[in-house]
Computed example of a mutant assay.
Amino acid sequence: MAHEDRAAHDEVDRIVAAWHRERPDLDVRPLEVLSRVSRLARHLDLARRGAFDRHGLETWEFDVLSALRRAGTPYRLSPGALLTLTLVTSGTMTNRIDRLAEKGLVERQPSPDDRRGVLVQLTPSGLARVDAAFADLLDTERTLLGDLSEQDRTQLASLLREALLPFDAPHPH
């Protein structure tokens, strides 16, 4: 089935057609892309929550655990590094580390480089949980991409990267 046939009558097409009818003086073409991105983000958020829930995790818990997992062996980072990777405040991160430690998913360890500092490290239970949740998440995300060919997925990823680059660029202070 051609891409045009599949996408010809989705909800965004109906919204765009209604705006064309009601406001023919406006260029509503940005809606054709960004409304679809927004709708896909909502579906992705629900699917991710489901994948994490199946492993007893909240989205924020997965974010912290996966940041530690991506750090590589021994799966530990400073609270400051976790702040940078998860974009939350210091107080929020302290609370999150406390809650994850209570669940036995992370532990605090003294920093070998700073006797006053601490490092946050995945426990074996945390490592197993984040690995299982990540595998489930990838299966869920593959399902969301549906029948897109590998070539279409690559092209879509490239186009979205181009759209996001200005937002991910370092900002001068």
Rank of each mutant, 00 (worst) to 15 (best):
E32N: 04
D131F: 03
L46W: 05
M93D: 07
A18Q: 13
M93P: 14
R129N: 09
I15C: 08
R48I: 03
L57D: 08
S78A: 13
H55L: 01
A133G: 06
E58H: 12
H9N: 15
T140Q: 11
D13A: 10
Q155S: 13
E22A: 09
L82S: 05
G80A: 13
R70K: 12
S158G: 13
R108N: 06
S149H: 11
E162S: 11
S90W: 11
S66V: 12
S125P: 06
A135K: 12
P79F: 01
H3C: 08
L156W: 11
G50I: 05
A132Y: 04
G50P: 05
W19D: 09
D63N: 14
Q109C: 04
R129D: 02
R54C: 06
E102P: 05
T73R: 13
L159H: 12
E32I: 13
W19I: 15
L127A: 09
D45K: 13
F134Y: 15
R36E: 03
L31G: 03
L144F: 08
I15P: 08
D114Q: 02
G91K: 12
L160C: 11
D53E: 15
V88Y: 00
G80Q: 12
I97G: 05
G146W: 00
Q151R: 14
P112K: 00
S78Y: 07
A41W: 09
G91W: 07
P30I: 07
D45T: 14
N95I: 06
R70I: 04
R76K: 10
A8S: 06
L127R: 09
